[in-house]
Nucleic acid binder design. Sequence first.
DNA 1: GCGCTATACATCGGTGCCGAGGTATTGTCC
DNA 2: GGACAATACCTCGGCACCGATGTATAGCGC
Lengths: 176, 176
Amino acid sequence: MLELAILGFLYEAPLHGYELRKRITALTGHVRPVAESTLYPAIKRLEKAGWLARETRPGAVAAPRHVLQLTPEGRSELERRLAEPARGEITDENRWFTLLAFLRHLPGAGAQADVLRRRLGFLEEPASFFYEGERPLRAEELDDPFRRGILTIARATSRAEITWLRATLRELGENR
Amino acid sequence: MLELAILGFLYEAPLHGYELRKRITALTGHVRPVAESTLYPAIKRLEKAGWLARETRPGAVAAPRHVLQLTPEGRSELERRLAEPARGEITDENRWFTLLAFLRHLPGAGAQADVLRRRLGFLEEPASFFYEGERPLRAEELDDPFRRGILTIARATSRAEITWLRATLRELGENR
DNA sequence: GCGCTATACATCGGTGCCGAGGTATTGTCC
DNA sequence: GGACAATACCTCGGCACCGATGTATAGCGC
């Protein structure tokens, strides 16, 4: 999730680490903050893998900046990660939102639509949080108001997203 | 999140590890699966902390079962975690849902309501995923259909949850 | 008898993540 | 002048998590 965000932001423009951090915090920080001690090692990992290059420039205000830029390999890596997301990228809402935030960088309306269709497939699977044996329970069948809430909220989210996915898939089909 | 789920399920009934795993998988597995190699060490951690005790019984079908049971300290620990959730438990939907699934074990409608109010406070903060300087952007202001989708879905979820939270808080107030 | 699945538990190495702390500069408030 | 926040980067220890692998029993289909 973090690596995807780094690659995604750098795809748009070269940035230094501190600026990158601010953008990532704006994107996902209110839900799940990213510590600096997580970001800088992650940058090093991506650099070591050859996906980004750094260029040291005198700092505008304070310490020297390391301006980070995606390499051609980094650009293909991002596209690969967008086109073939891991299962967790589809099922975990946090990770899915991160992917969605950069999906515009995946070339081809068809490829974008394929990714949306995977999410749609996941959302249409009959799944609950609570079961009686094999059978998924509906909100109305639960006594506990809090568990009922989980199902109520999850159902509302799911419906809104399915509606949006169908509409967006239609648009992608038209503009192809 | 995992520890909370273990404490929560064992609060309801003594279980062996394998059964615990099945319940946790049913609860959160479709979004974020838990590996066995994560569960068993977690059980050991909780045991070492004195929050649960194991009793070995001959296996009904296969290997001997270790039936796990919360100690009195374990019960207070769960109640403490439910009453004073960390910030991440409030903001991250996955963790929040796990907490909600066991909130019924927190004694006192007032204490339950306090937790719901913290979540409500978080949802009512003006937050976006995208900003222009300091100002949060609305869905309509974005060109990118995918980023627009993120905001559309997040808004729908947020509205549904706020409605549910307000209604449930009202009920909790009445039944006090 | 063989492979497969389910039950039931466990270890190990690798890795990602985080809190705490460190270094250095500039600007602002009192 | 001294405290403090912001900018900008980094290291280190600890730990949670995971995939791979191992051990053993029981039942089912072929």
